[in-house]
Computed example of a mutant assay.
Amino acid sequence: MAAKETPAQRSAVMRAVKSRDTSPERAVRKLLRAFAPGYRLHRKDVPGNPDIAYLGRKQAIFVHGCFWHGHDCARGARMPKANAEYWRAKIARNRARDAAHGARLAELGWRALTVWECELKDKGALEKKLRAFLRA
């Protein structure tokens, strides 16, 4: 039986979670390089600081982790048993922030696409989705 994790250990684990240049984000960029290079990364001058932005086209791509952004897939629906109320509130805040960023982008004439971490399981379908978004 494993020893219970201390709050300090949990804090260290959470600090190590990256918010940019994650594996899912790098996988999406690798797909895009093949047919749509010329994107910019993490632009602070674009609402929501999208992971990938095509400035001239006014198109933004967000690569979201299913758990962190409350996706309705199996991984996103899983809620930690410890400190569950904190996580429910945290994920709700993330979802509200995502919606606000999407609305602000739309006001400015931008189109946004969310790529979920679970979509990387089917790279062919994801490439098709990305191509359709960038063509429109």
Rank of each mutant, 00 (worst) to 15 (best):
M1T: 13
A2D: 13
T6M: 02
P7L: 02
A8S: 09
A8N: 13
Q9P: 07
S11E: 09
V13W: 03
V13C: 06
A16T: 10
A16R: 15
V17R: 06
S19K: 13
S19E: 01
S19W: 02
S19G: 15
R20P: 02
D21A: 08
D21E: 02
S23T: 15
E25Y: 09
E25K: 04
A27S: 14
V28Q: 00
V28C: 09
K30E: 15
L31T: 05
L32P: 09
L32S: 08
A34M: 05
A36S: 13
P37F: 12
G38S: 11
G38N: 04
Y39T: 10
R40G: 10
L41Y: 00
H42E: 12
K44G: 10
K44P: 00
K44W: 11
D45A: 00
V46D: 00
P47I: 02
P47G: 03
P50S: 11
P50N: 07
A53T: 14
Y54S: 06
Y54I: 03
G56H: 15
Q59M: 13
I61R: 01
F62Q: 12
V63S: 09
H64K: 05
C66K: 00
C66G: 07
C66E: 02
F67C: 06
D72E: 14
C73F: 08
A74Q: 14
R75S: 12
G76K: 01
R78G: 05
M79K: 14
M79H: 12
P80A: 05
P80I: 06
P80Q: 10
N83H: 14
E85G: 11
Y86D: 00
Y86L: 03
W87H: 05
W87M: 03
R88M: 12
A89Y: 02
A92T: 10
N94R: 00
R95P: 09
R95W: 08
R95S: 07
D98C: 06
A100D: 11
A103G: 01
A106T: 14
A106P: 11
A106L: 01
L108E: 12
G109S: 08
W110K: 07
W110S: 07
W110L: 01
R111E: 15
A112I: 03
A112C: 12
L113Y: 04
T114Q: 08
T114I: 14
T114V: 15
V115F: 00
W116M: 03
E117L: 10
C118Q: 00
C118W: 03
E119G: 09
K121Q: 04
D122R: 13
G124D: 12
A125W: 07
A125L: 06
L126D: 02
L126G: 00
A132N: 10
F133K: 09
F133Q: 09
F133L: 04
F133A: 08
L134H: 05
L134K: 08
L134M: 06
R135F: 10
R135S: 15
A136L: 03
A136N: 14
